[in-house]
């Protein structure tokens, strides 16, 4: 195998591992806040809640609880972040890391539709959304977003070394020209 191709595969795996670790840390923080609160580490737990309060309303009625304490984000955000984690874990089983495929942008817009409907029906009092609907619609969008973010991250190092080759099927082959 071409040594440049081997290097590219190695760096793609390294970048993927760092990316996945970062998402695991992010999702662990969401779970850590209620656990720390439960075990009376109120300040550290408060810091995590305060951190996530910048990106989530944290309304108790719309949040999941663990051991009687609410998660650091609401049920929809939980779905989004854990969907993102799920998508990142499944990614290498569906696509090869050295043969990146960028889906058509329409899939990103399609993934927004369920969450938009879920918000729409509640905003206009057509029906009340549920924990399940918020979680599932969040999971769908979170998992789909990975398909548009991870290819860019995997090709980061590669961009500097050699130009990307994108095939008509929008697949990027690392280490080939």
């Amino acid at each position: 195998m071409d040594s440049h191709l081997q290097d590219s595969i190695k760096s793609a795996h390294l970048i993927y591992s760092i990316f996945l670790s970062a998402i695991v840390i992010w999702c662990s923080l969401i779970l850590a806040a209620p656990l720390l609160a439960k075990f009376e580490h109120r300040f550290s737990s408060g810091l995590i809640y305060f951190f996530f309060s910048k990106i989530c309303h944290q309304i108790p009625e719309r949040s999941f609880f663990i051991l009687g304490k609410q998660l650091a984000v609401c049920s929809r955000c939980t779905g989004l972040y854990f969907g993102f984690l799920l998508g990142a874990i499944l990614y290498p089983f569906i696509f090869k890391l050295n043969r990146i495929s960028i889906p058509s942008r329409k899939y990103l817009f399609l993934a927004c539709i369920p969450i938009a409907i879920d918000i729409f029906i509640r905003t206009f009092h057509i029906a009340e959304n549920t924990f399940t609907s918020r979680l599932i619609t969040g999971l769908i969008l979170g998992a789909t977003t990975v398909l548009f973010v991870l290819p860019g991250i995997l090709t980061l190092k590669f961009n500097k070394n050699r130009p990307l080759i994108i095939r008509q099927s929008t697949e990027i082959y690392l280490g080939q020209s």
């Binding site: 806040a33 609160a37 109120r42 300040f43 737990s45 408060g46 305060f50 309060s53 944290q58």
Partner: peptide, 12 residues
């Protein structure tokens, strides 16, 4: 509306 731990953190 926020978890009581946030209130603690703000006071700290």
């Amino acid at each position: 509306d926020l978890p009581p731990e946030v209130e603690d953190a703000l006071i700290r």
